[in-house]
Amino acid sequence: MSLDELKIGYFYSNGAYGRTWGVRQLAAIGHDAESGEAVYHFKGVAGICRRKKGHCSPIEFARWARYQVALQENDWKRVGGEAYPPDESVAL
C-alpha cells in the first residue's frame, strides 16, 4: 500500500494465507525522540498479530499492509473491490 492510503484507526491485513495471516490496526503516528523520524504504532487484532503491539517505520508498515480490511459479522473482509456485495434491500 502507499503511505497516502494508510489512516489512523483503520485495519490492514498482510494478505497472507494460513498461519502467517494477520490484521493490524494503525493506532497512532508518532516521532522518534532522537531522530525525529515518523513511527507508526499498531495493535494486532487477528491472526498471527493478535494481542500484540508494536511500532515500525511508515515504509515497513506500508510494505506489510497489502490492503485495508473491515470486520463483518465474524469475518475480516477486504475493503473495496468485491469485498462488499451491493445492497440488495434498495429497490430499483
Rank of each mutant, 00 (worst) to 15 (best):
P86W: 12
E88P: 13
A27T: 00
T20E: 07
N74A: 08
H31T: 10
A46W: 02
A62D: 01
F11I: 02
R51N: 14
V23E: 08
W76C: 08
V39K: 03
K77G: 03
R50V: 12
D75H: 13
R78N: 09
G44I: 12
K7Q: 07
W64H: 03
K7R: 07
Y17I: 13
Y84E: 10
E88F: 13
H55N: 12
L3N: 05
L71I: 04
A65D: 01
E73K: 09
D87L: 14
G9M: 05
Y17R: 01
A62Y: 05
H31C: 13
W64P: 00
G44Y: 09
G18P: 06
S13L: 02
D75R: 15
L92P: 15
A46I: 10
V69L: 06
T20F: 12
D75L: 15
A27C: 00
F61C: 11
P58F: 08
Q72G: 07
I59A: 14
A83R: 12
A28D: 11
Y84R: 11
I48G: 13
P58D: 08
P85C: 13
Q25F: 07
Q25T: 00
D32W: 09
F42S: 02
V90T: 09
A62S: 06
E82G: 13
S57Q: 01
V23R: 07
R51A: 15
V79S: 04
C56W: 03
G9W: 08
G47F: 02
E60F: 09
Y67H: 10
G9N: 09
D87M: 15
I29V: 12
H31A: 13
Q68H: 04
R78Q: 14
H55I: 00
K43V: 01
I59S: 13
Y67G: 03
Q68G: 03
A38N: 04
F42L: 06
H41C: 07
R50H: 10
D87N: 15
W64A: 02
G18K: 07
A16Q: 14
R78G: 04
H41Y: 14
S2H: 04
P58W: 10
L6P: 11
I59F: 10
R50T: 05
K77Q: 12
A70M: 08
A38I: 01
S13M: 03
W21Q: 14
Y17C: 07
T20D: 13
R50C: 11
K53S: 12
Y40R: 00
G36D: 01
D32E: 02
W64T: 00
V90D: 09
R78H: 06
L26H: 02
E82P: 11
Y84L: 11
W76N: 04
S57E: 00
S2F: 02
Q68D: 01
